[in-house]
Amino acid sequence: MNRYSIWAMEFAEVPDYHLSGLIYGAHNQGYRRLPYCYVVIKGQGRVAMIDVGYNHKAYGEVLANTYGVRNWRPPREVLAECGLAPEDVSTVFITHAHFDHMGNLEDFPNATFYIQERELSKWVWAMSLERRFRWLMLGIDPADLLRAVDLARQGRLVCVNGDREDALPGIDLRAAFDTHTWASMYVTVRNDLAANSGNTWVFAGDLIYAAENLRGADADDPFYVPVGLATGSQVNLIMTAEDMIKAAQGDPNRVIAVHEDRLGSMFPSRTTSANLKITELALAEGEPSRVG
């Protein structure tokens, strides 16, 4: 029996993102739709999210005009598709500090945010380097750090050092140091709350962009291929992929990549009036389907 309902909810998209950004070395192999997505977890009397998207007021025009990001919708509109509001969210797990995952902290006024401490401290270290090292700062918004200051002062920022079991019942945080970023983390949901769960979902953040990162080009003879962008090590990304597959009882379909366009065809889903997908990964008892 599922203890949590889980949805992956698109809030924006890039219609044609180059494949080499998603899959290491896939140069000149064309483009693919890249959804921007966060995950909503509801159950046990609470609502949690994995990542919060970005703030359209701050970035929308630049992203739309220069980088082809389309169709951004605010959390209030997106969450309403599941009968929720941003105020309902009490816990947010930030997988890493990039703008499209951490860039909308202020829209969740009642949430406590979990992030790896090293993710913040290493960004701060990178900021102290000279100008020629500025590649290390790409995708980071100083405004997010200012908001993090406020959260810390309000006691709403929890800096995690490494793994944490049961951050919420059945929900574990797993550090992946020096991978996509300095200290990305993935989130596992043991949806039966059992210690040795047979019903685990793994939410990969940007440690995985697409199914090919877990199986290469040949699903019958799979091999790991890292994502197309990493601050850390490709080796660490591959070893983390193995850890995630193991956590998902060996089932790659249970390792959820939020930028995977085909998620909606792998699980029950629907397209909203805003032309964005909601994918329903699990339903807790008594929860009505939001995609039926």
């Binding site: 890039v14 044609d16 993102y17 180059h18 950004g21 483009y31 890249l34 921007y36 701050a58 970035y59 630049v62 992203l63 220069t66 980088y67 082809g68 990001v69 990039h98 703008f99 499209d100 500025r134 590649w135 700062m137 790409l138 995708g139 980071i140 918004d141 100083p142 405004a143 996509h180 940007d206 994502v227 197309g228 962008l229 930028h259």
Partner: peptide
């Protein structure tokens, strides 16, 4: 305000 060039998920075409 944010340098998106070469940032993941927002690559300039």
């Amino acid at each position: 305000m944010v340098s998106f060039q070469h940032a993941c998920c927002a690559a300039r075409r």
